[in-house]
């Protein structure tokens, strides 16, 4: 499917989605509560058929926390980039996509570990890289640790 049709299709499913400028991928900013609807449509619908989640990234933009999803379809060869953002730095929370793409399992655990973003509905949300009793989320921009970090 070419990008115009894809844009129309996504806007039809989630009218609130904002398209962002990006040279490589078709990028949309999605309101967090619509994420579940959109991803389910993208995965299940035959003419969209996004069956491969190739990257899931947690990002700290300074004030906002968010997650970036890179999706592609192995049969139809089109890709899309989705973003969700939230201002809530205390208890950020998004819906999980593990039920659609199993690769999201480890990715989401990593994002929880390093950014402290919860994923509702994730089957086993534990820290994956750091110890269970680690305090804080080290990839956040405001993370400080006087003992372990030697600043250059």
């Amino acid at each position: 499917m070419d990008s115009e049709k894809l844009t129309d299709k996504i806007l039809e499913i989630v009218p609130e989605a904002q398209q962002e400028e990006n040279k490589q991928f078709l990028t949309f900013l999605i309101p967090p509560d619509k994420l579940k609807t959109l991803t389910t449509h993208l995965k299940e619908e035959k003419e969209l058929d996004f069956d491969y989640l190739f990257c899931l990234t947690g990002v700290d933009w300074g004030t906002e926390l968010g997650v970036v999803y890179h999706l592609t379809s192995t049969s139809l060869n089109h890709s899309v980039e989705l973003k969700v953002k939230t201002d809530n730095r205390e208890t950020p929370e998004f819906d999980t996509v593990t039920d659609l793409w199993m690769t999201a399992d480890f990715f989401e655990r990593e994002v929880w570990d390093l950014f402290g973003i919860r994923f509702t509905g994730h089957p086993d949300l534990r820290r994956i890289l750091l110890e269970e009793d680690w305090v804080g989320y080290p990839m956040r921009k405001d993370y400080t640790d006087e003992v372990n970090i030697v600043e250059l």
């Binding site: 750091l130 080290p138 993370y143 640790d145 372990n148 970090i149 030697v150 600043e151 250059l152």
Partner: peptide
């Protein structure tokens, strides 16, 4: 990995 990292024993 001496500088700027939070998880390495120096």
């Amino acid at each position: 990995f001496f500088y700027n990292t939070y998880h390495v024993i120096r």
